[in-house]
Design a protein around this nucleic acid. Sequence first.
DNA 1: TCTGGGGTCCTAGGACCC
DNA 2: TCTGGGGTCCTAGGACCC
Length: 472
Amino acid sequence: MFGLLDCNNFYVSCERVFQPRYEGRPVVVLSNNDGNLISRSAEAKALGLKMGDPYFQVKDLLQQHNVKVFSSNYALYGDMSRRVMYHLQQVAPAVEIYSIDEAFLDLAGMETYCGNLDAYARKVREGVKARTGIPTCVGIAPTKTLAKLANRIAKKDAGLGGVLYLNTPERRAWALRQVPVGNVWGVGRQYAAKLAAAGVDSAADLARVSEAWARKHLGGVVGARLVQELQGRPCAGLHPSEDGTLSRQSISCSRTFGKPLTAFDDVLAAVAAFLSRAAEKLRAQGDMAHVLTVYISKNRFAPQVLPPFSRSATLTLPIGSTADTTVLLGYARLLVGRLWEKGTAYQKAGVVLDGLEPPGTGQQLDLFAAAPALAKPVEQPALVTQRPGLMASLDALNQRFGRGTVRIATAVPAPGHSATTSGHHPPPWAGKAQWRSPCFTTRLEDLMVVNYSVGVIMAVVLCHCIYLVPRQ
DNA sequence: TCTGGGGTCCTAGGACCC
DNA sequence: TCTGGGGTCCTAGGACCC
């Protein structure tokens, strides 16, 4: 049996925990660059605002209804997520962190242990709410796909009290009838259109199609599994998240620039900055990478710009794996050079690290460096592929004094870019973030200031929280 | 004027190997 | 006239997810 716990309007809920005056009011959170709506409170959804709506298109509507707008604050959301996941790991036998706001719980055998899964799920919800302030819903079912489905219904139907347990075939059949096929986990826009054309409208209809049909029209084996899962036959198990963190198979970092860039050095500086961040995440995960992809993109919305909007180049590192930012950057520079088209305005860039593995597993050694007894045909400097000490120092400094305290020089934009009134020099690729909330939980300067008597109470609460949620 | 970012899995074709 | 079979790796791209 699988449980799926999903936080309600997660980013909005995170903001509300620290600014409760926005409870009951329409609130939205914008994507990077203040581009699109990526989280909406129930009140905002009721106004007809859609997920992914470009901000500039709905700006008037937002103003008209006095909707509170936040820029996204991932430092805050990431830290709140960690707290939610930490609590789940205290109360569930095994937890798979599925995304920043969702986790699968392995509930095999829990029925016999705690008697009633429905009551158990209600306790878990209350626990998360009490410890983090975040509201959630829980779906429980024999497969992950059905647990997602149950969760969705629990979110929509307030009468269920945030929990739906599909414990009988009758309930499962009922649940399948409630959900339009386009809202099934694994059915996106393309498949939904195909299914509609074939007369498959609800999840119940999809559960009835033949395996051969699913294979043919829904992406091969993926479609076959999807249908089986809807029928209650599990095709995917739970992959527990070790030590409460996600370990990924690829790591990327990309940004849309605040303005189009036409100078090679500016784009290279952006790529260097993104690569630095990706490599930092790589090291935090304890891995090295041996595949590097760089891409640079034009503005896909500009009417005069023709496709392809993006060009990418991938390189399997000839030196094997590394987690060294400077080594990776050497290759990234080559790739940017390969992609660069003179006279083009670029709007976005990104890097991806693939082929991740822990140190010592798949390292390619330099033949000559590894066997110094062999005479080298030509004397050449030793190839530097790792400087773990240097990288560890870099990470330690940046963790202690703030991200970007020590940077690779390539990632520092050339002088001459305009400073803001405060004298701060934003990089040329910097985007907008007009309405960012303070990093209440991760920056000392952003800690809430309260008066003395409230302060004493707060200090007690804070100590309590620190006790409950030790930092990793 | 203004349109996100970070992931997963799968497929397919070409190069290359035995 | 007819031109193998089975495998890996690499790269690119499509579809999906939150």
